[in-house]
Simulated scan of single mutants.
Amino acid sequence: MDILFVADPLEVFKTYKDTTFSMMREAQRRGHRIAACEPRHLVWESGKPVSATVREIRLTGGEHDWFEVTATHAVPLKQFGAVLMRKDPPFDSEYFYATHLLEQAEREGARVFNKPAALRDHPEKLAIMEFAQYTSPTLVTRDEAEVKRFHERHGDIILKPLDGMGGMGIFRVGKDGLNLGSIVETLNRQGTTTLMVQRYVPEIAQGDKRVLVIGGEVVPFCLARIPQGSEIRGNLAAGGKGVAQPVSARDREIAQALGPVLNQRGLLLVGLDVIGDYLTEINVTSPTCFQEITQQAGFDVPKMFVDALERAVQ
Rank of each mutant, 00 (worst) to 15 (best):
F5N: 04
D8M: 03
E11L: 01
V12F: 08
K14G: 12
K17L: 15
D18C: 11
S22Q: 10
Q28D: 11
H32F: 12
H32W: 06
I34H: 01
A36K: 10
C37N: 06
C37S: 10
E38I: 08
P39L: 04
H41G: 14
H41K: 15
L42I: 03
V50T: 06
S51N: 07
A52V: 14
V54K: 14
G61M: 07
H64Q: 09
D65C: 05
F67M: 05
P76D: 15
Q79D: 13
V83I: 10
D92T: 06
Y95T: 08
A98H: 01
A98F: 02
A98D: 06
T99D: 12
H100N: 12
H100K: 15
A110E: 10
R111K: 14
P116K: 06
H122V: 05
P123V: 05
E124F: 08
A127Y: 01
I128S: 01
T141S: 13
D143F: 11
R153V: 07
H154Q: 01
G155C: 05
I157K: 01
I158G: 00
K160Q: 08
R172Q: 15
L178V: 15
L180A: 09
I183R: 04
N188F: 13
G191W: 10
L195H: 08
M196Y: 03
Y200H: 04
V201G: 00
Q206R: 08
L212Y: 06
L212I: 07
V213I: 11
E217M: 08
P220N: 00
C222A: 15
L223T: 00
Q228S: 07
R233T: 09
G234A: 00
G240Q: 02
G240T: 02
G242T: 01
A244K: 10
A257N: 02
P260Q: 12
G266L: 11
V270F: 08
T280H: 02
V284Q: 14
V284A: 06
I293T: 11
Q295C: 05
Q296M: 08
F299Q: 02
P302W: 00
M304P: 03
